[in-house]
Design a protein around this nucleic acid. Structure first.
Lengths: 347, 347
DNA sequence: GTGAAAGCGCTAACAG
DNA sequence: CTGTTAGCGCTTTCAC
């Protein structure tokens, strides 16, 4: 570890005050728009500021004011388009409020999740917005619970005293499956990632609830848990489609799994929706532009972002006191496009 | 703008020193692993640290040391998978070196780009890694040139005194096109985004260079500039494919444009590669898993990340002095898969 | 309305 | 080897 030579000092509020011929305090008052400064003083300070190209030193402000105007955001992976868009939305909400968002990818590694939370602490984040990948890891759990700043937990089931934003996966899924049942489908397949986390659990619940509500047994054999998050789904789906009795409708994760699924479907020379109906869990760009456009489950990320921001800012700016942890539910909408048709044998 | 009440003060190095029964200076030495501390002292301080749960205050360190151990990263949009992966790689390189990366999306908005650079300044970034969307915008340009910290410009042509990492788009493209020419293709289409920026310019150069090298005229009519970055390419590609004389090979941006292109191709009932050869510019996940796997132009983002990190860290840690701006070129590889076949009329 | 001064938490220089 | 001390740049009392 080399000894990084410090940067040259840049212009400080002292020099501004000096050039303006006022005291340090007055300069500060002008900069912070504190009322009760004479026009004369203000003008001279402003002039000095532009003349010197003065910029407030953030570290000094943070040290003195004990707040960094920075929000920590821990996600498993921005390369997941869902998270990328979420981050964009979150960043823009907070920017409006004068905060900067520090993004950290945990890549699902428990130790990194702990390290990142630690880093959020020592860097004095004013608040954090996190979706830990390890919901059940004792130490991650402890680190989350020990968070000393306002926090919002994003779509995870973690026992702690923080605010939460949760997606209504179960309802959304139930809606989609009921729709398929209504089209006469009974052999409905579900292809999901292996992660044992809140979203997956809830989706499964919704899937089963839909059958239960229709007085039908859920087709257990058609639920495919992929072996790994990044595992190619092509083989698994192909196998599913080649069974003597194959599903007539499929719900699959709208990630790379969806691509694999489409490939597998085409390979079997099945047509969407005539031969098989398809619903994407998640709504990637191309679901809309695909031929045919794919029906999908979607959560509105702008809503998620603004709700999360509201929860966090309420606390940060003292609007919420030490009130109870709050829970905000965000709908999972089912977008009907053209990838589902009545079950052939059932019309 | 409410007046955010400051957070409660957390434990400081003073309290650590007090509990350990040593001076503030000794505590600091232990924390910073400065050699020349007795084992006794070290142990007592360490004990006090864990006992109190002490964490160094980053703002104070940054203020005092005039470095933030933070790298600013400005990209147009993390929702672009290329940038998402790049960020991941960059983040991980810098994390190893003890730095945190602050990501900001400019969404191509010139004013935001200026604001972000300004923010990087006042927050005392130790270095920045930027790919401004607006290469030709006077004020953005000025802001980039005025950057007062070590900077790496990512794949942009901007006249300034900063280090650069540039992708060899021209060579990569020339390679791919030569390959197609070698397969007997003459009517080669190119579908690219409208952005007038370095990557696009270089690709176009490479495209033309390949024809020139083969002693052939570049087919100007087959170059499609999409109207907007997000514009659906479906119609444009369909039009291309329906011409009396249609391209027998196509190179298209490996973004949503690729999906649209594939849709258009299928809609015309053309088969890949028998009826039309296809090359993706950029290598999204599904290019590999598609049926057939798609040949693609790819840049190794780990290389980009580590080169960028090296350039930046060299300067930050004073290894490079005030030397000339450096330029690092990164290959654009052409990955041959199975989406290209000999031109039918030419075998 | 303005100035002087204290101190946020830390590191590094200096004296012992 | 250890303690003391002087600020880093800023905001915010408290006097005037």
């Amino acid at each position: 570890m080399a000894a990084p030579p410090p940067k040259p000092r840049s212009v400080s509020i002292r020099e501004v005050a000096a050039l303006a011929g006022v005291s340090l305090g007055s300069a500060s008052r002008v900069i912070n728009q504190v009322p009760g400064v004479s026009d004369n003083t203000r003008e001279r300070v402003m002039k000095a500021i532009t003349e010197l190209g003065y910029r407030p030193n953030h570290a000094a402000q943070a040290l003195r004011g004990r707040r960094s105007r920075t929000i920590g955001c821990m996600l498993t992976d921005v390369a997941n388009p869902l998270y990328a868009r979420l981050f964009r939305a979150v960043e823009s909400r907070f920017r409006e409020a004068g905060y900067v968002v520090l993004l950290a990818n945990s890549l699902n590694n428990p130790q990194w999740e702990i390290d990142i939370l630690e880093m959020f602490h020592s860097r004095g984040m004013d608040g954090v917005l996190i979706a830990p990948g390890n919901e059940r890891h004792a130490q991650v759990l402890a680190a989350v619970q020990a968070l000393e700043m306002p926090a919002v937990i994003l779509d995870r089931d973690i026992a702690c005293e923080h605010d939460r934003v949760q997606f209504e996966h179960a309802q959304g899924m139930q809606h989609a499956v009921s729709y398929l049942l209504g089209l006469g489908h009974r052999d409905i397949g579900l292809v999901i990632a292996p992660a044992h986390n809140r979203p997956m659990r809830r989706r499964l619940e919704g899937f089963q609830a839909a059958f239960r509500a229709a007085g039908l047994p859920a087709p257990k054999d058609f639920i495919v848990h992929l072996p790994g998050a990044m595992s190619p789904a092509f083989d698994a789906v192909s196998e599913l489609l080649q069974r003597p009795r194959r599903p007539t409708a499929l719900l699959t994760m709208g990630t790379s799994v969806l691509n694999d699924t489409l490939n597998a479907i085409h390979r079997q020379r099945l047509r969407i929706p005539q031969d098989i109906s398809l619903v994407s869990i998640g709504d990637p760009d191309f679901a809309r532009s695909y031929t045919p456009p794919l029906s999908a489950l979607r959560v509105d990320l702008d809503t998620v972002a603004s709700q999360s921001a509201r929860l966090l800012l309420d606390r940060i700016e003292g609007r919420q006191g030490v009130a109870e942890p709050r829970r905000v539910k965000v709908d999972v909408e089912f977008i009907v496009r053209q990838s589902c048709a009545p079950a052939s044998g059932a019309a």
